[in-house]
Design a protein around this nucleic acid. Structure first.
Lengths: 96, 96
DNA sequence: ATAATTTGGTTTATAAAATAAACTTGTTTA
DNA sequence: TAAACAAGTTTATTTTATAAACCAAATTAT
């Protein structure tokens, strides 16, 4: 009846991050921070969780002399995001 | 960009309860428990929260000699549910 | 030159939430 | 009348989300 909602995605900030990455394919940490309005600390933690789950990959490079953290969604992450949307539909009463 | 998701609704069990009540208009505690698969304790807590927020109303009656707890969604609850769905859309990239 | 500020984060501590286990009250059944 | 059951509630535990504090390097101001 009500499928479980992937707890990794059922989180406001992580969902926002995934939402951004689904459409941009690649985004830098400060950009995600600005778009989501999150604090750096919170974002850092949530990015780690998504990365640990294999939903995104995180590349640490440099932009000139400044460190630069780039995030990309993985195929696993895309599938999980799609599945989450499908599961949500059971809750949102599309059965009107 | 990403609107805040009503924390009262952004909870798996509370969302399931609201989802049920949106379509049934009235449901007994044991029925909700069965449909959601929740434990009685968890359900009791979450029903209290929805009730405290004015999203549902809880009527305690008897069915013969047995206590019977009936839940109904309120107009406030209906509006909040609709608003939650709208807010979610910003996260789910309907912009394909 | 060096002190102060900014950038780009991470780590740690705290507050809030979700969840289940344990308990209560009354009823039905053995 | 003792045991089991129904319908919840309360309490305790675990998880989670979040921000505050921190760190290192680079840039800017004095």
């Amino acid at each position: 009846m009500f499928p479980t909602l992937d707890p990794l995605l059922h989180s406001e900030l992580r969902l926002a991050v995934m939402s951004l990455l689904i459409s941009t394919e690649e985004a830098e940490f400060p950009y995600i921070k600005e778009q989501t309005g999150a604090t750096a600390g919170n974002l850092s933690v949530q990015v780690d969780k998504l990365s640990a789950a294999g939903y995104i990959e995180v590349e640490k490079t440099f932009k000139g002399k400044k460190p630069c953290t780039i995030c990309r969604i993985t195929p696993t992450g895309q599938k999980a995001f799609e599945a989450y949307i499908q599961a949500l539909k059971a809750y949102l009463n599309i059965t009107k």
